[in-house]
């Protein structure tokens, strides 16, 4: 059973935002998550995460002057866990419809309150057998740079493969083709994923 990490709170065709059940419990940057209604599973790559106050007007204030350790702050102020929340945003990179895995955008956006799961290694391996999703990542406008995102995503995915290096080499070759002529971006990615 895949690990349920949160719930979709905002969704569009190309991305969705989800709130984590645990404070600071966001999946790693670049990891593959999925959400679905049983008919269509939407796959997405985490590109941003943030922990904020649940009320936009109320900023957290520093509380730890008299505490010895960081955990002590939460222990002395148990309400904090309820007043803060961790959210993450993910870029849709594919979907599975009727058992068939596709590396392009789904017909419908993810549903609000859809559960979000972290993909198991088996599923990551299956998904990353094709590199067609890299185009979607490279074209995305994300707060962190696209190069950071691609590199993080490949690093994450490589962990699911038996031979991470071979995987990274094949992926990087695809990146070279996609980034035809953009030597700066290419070098940036290569430096970030080299094993």
């Amino acid at each position: 059973m895949p690990f349920k990490i949160g719930e979709v709170v905002q969704a569009s065709t190309s991305q969705f935002q989800a709130e984590c059940y645990e404070l600071h419990g966001s999946p790693p940057f670049g990891s593959l998550v999925k959400t679905g209604d049983g008919l269509i599973d939407v796959y997405a790559v985490v590109y941003n995460a943030a922990t904020t106050s649940i009320e936009p007007g109320r900023h957290p204030i520093a509380r730890g002057r008299d505490e010895m350790a960081e955990e002590d702050i939460y222990r002395s102020n148990p309400q904090l866990a309820k007043l803060l929340r961790t959210e993450f945003e993910a870029l849709v990179v594919g979907h599975r419809e009727a058992g068939c895995l596709r590396h392009y955008l789904p017909p419908q956006p993810a549903r609000i309150h859809g559960f979000v799961y972290v993909c198991e290694p088996d599923e990551v391996r299956e998904f990353s057998r094709s590199f067609d999703f890299l185009r979607l990542l490279l074209d995305a406008r994300v707060p962190a740079s696209a190069e950071e995102l691609v590199a993080a995503c490949l690093r994450q995915a490589s962990q699911a493969h038996q031979d991470p290096r071979t995987f990274l080499v094949s992926a990087a070759k695809e990146v070279v083709i996609l980034l035809n002529g953009q030597l700066d971006s290419l070098n940036a990615i290569l430096r970030r994923i080299k094993a």
Partner: peptide, 16 residues
Amino acid sequence: PDVSDPFIAEVVAGTS
């Protein structure tokens, strides 16, 4: 490219 790094050398071969 920096082909002294075997990884980069391997990636560049056959693509760039």
